[in-house]
């Protein structure tokens, strides 16, 4: 890889100088071939990203049923208005946020801790790094079905273990908090390793000199972690927070299969763990209201845009603050 990539860098100069002498075809080549090179992405994005987005927006303005998709009745913003008046939508929105919080926050903190540990020189480091990645490589469906067994009310391993220490058996399916914690466990199990590896990569790019000088200044390990590691990881942390937020907003597979598929899209008997993704699926594929499902999809999209903007906004504000603080510090000195 590196060998094929390096030589052109050295020959860039001479090539540029000779550019005036290349034939017309060569100029065309230089002018248009870059477009051809980037075209695959844009063509695929238009077909599988942009078109569905726009078509979904179009569908969301109509009343369409899957049983007769040819028949479309103009509904204007009726589907959106219907959503705002539907208590099940608000319930799903609330569940998405609570499950998102229970799964994302501990997950990222644990990932940070694990990455810190893996950053030390320890025996079998590669083994641990690969092992952390294993849950991520497992299919959602398979993992969820196994967890569904573990969380079984009557014969589940977790309730059995809790029983050994005298805890009364917990109804992991029907309890609102219990079921949300159960689902969050699956998410956390799957994604912690992935995030830890990303943090690890970020940590390894922090120059060792910074730690050395911090140590010379008398910073403790904890202070080094806070002021050098976390500082250096800022862009990485922002990246993982954004990706996790998007993932949490779209949470679907885990709650769908949480009861072994029996309760499916309704998200439990009382919709106690119905997320926005499941609500969308319920509207579209249990009740066949395609127009409404499309409206849910767009609302989800907007929510994600708002959340991501908020995230980056906060991050930018904080770094501005700190830059200002740094200047002030220098001035004082």
């Amino acid at each position: 890889m590196t060998q094929t990539a390096t030589p052109p860098r050295f020959t860039v100069g001479p090539q540029r100088r000779g550019a005036g002498h290349v034939r017309r075809r060569g100029r065309w080549d230089v002018k248009y071939s870059p477009y051809a090179f980037v075209a695959p992405f844009f063509v695929l994005f238009a077909a599988f990203g942009l078109f569905p987005l726009i078509y979904t927006a179009y569908i969301s303005l109509y009343r369409v049923e899957l049983t007769d998709p040819g028949q479309r009745v103009w509904a204007g913003l009726g589907n959106y208005a219907g959503l705002l008046h539907d208590p099940f939508f608000w319930n799903a929105l609330r569940n998405t946020f609570t499950i998102g919080a229970i799964s994302t926050i501990p997950q990222l903190l644990m990932a940070l801790g694990l990455a810190h540990l893996l950053n030390y020189r320890l025996r079998g480091r590669t083994f641990f790094r690969v092992a952390m990645m294993m849950p991520y490589a497992t299919s959602v469906a398979a993992a969820t079905l196994v967890f569904a067994q573990l969380f079984g009310r009557d014969y589940g391993l977790i309730n059995w273990a809790l029983g050994l220490v005298g805890v009364h058996r917990i109804d992991w399916q029907n309890g609102t908090w219990a079921s949300q914690v159960g689902i969050s466990t699956i998410v956390t199990w799957r994604w912690t390793g992935y995030n830890a590896l990303i943090y690890l990569a970020g940590m390894q790019s922090i120059p060792a000199e910074l730690y050395e000088s911090a140590a010379i200044d008398g910073a403790s390990r904890w202070q080094q972690f806070r002021h050098v590691t976390i500082r250096g990881l800022r862009p990485t942390i922002i990246f993982t927070v954004i990706v996790s937020t998007i993932g949490a907003t779209q949470l679907f597979g885990e709650p769908l299969l949480y009861e072994g598929g029996t309760r499916g899209p309704s998200g439990g008997v009382s919709h106690q763990y119905q997320t926005l993704g499941l609500y969308l699926y319920d509207q579209g594929w249990s009740f066949f209201h395609l127009g409404r499902a499309a409206a849910v999809a767009w609302v989800m999209f907007l929510i994600i845009v708002v959340l991501v903007t908020l995230n980056t906004g906060i991050a930018r504000l904080r770094s501005c603050d700190e830059r200002a603080l740094g200047r002030k510090g220098r001035a004082l000195r």
Binding site: A148, Q149, G152, D154, Y155, Q173, E259, G260, T262, R263
Partner: peptide, 12 residues
């Protein structure tokens, strides 16, 4: 208190 067709129901 079982849910019909659930894995627990099958075990029962």
């Amino acid at each position: 208190k079982l849910t019909q067709w659930s894995p627990q129901w099958n075990q029962a």
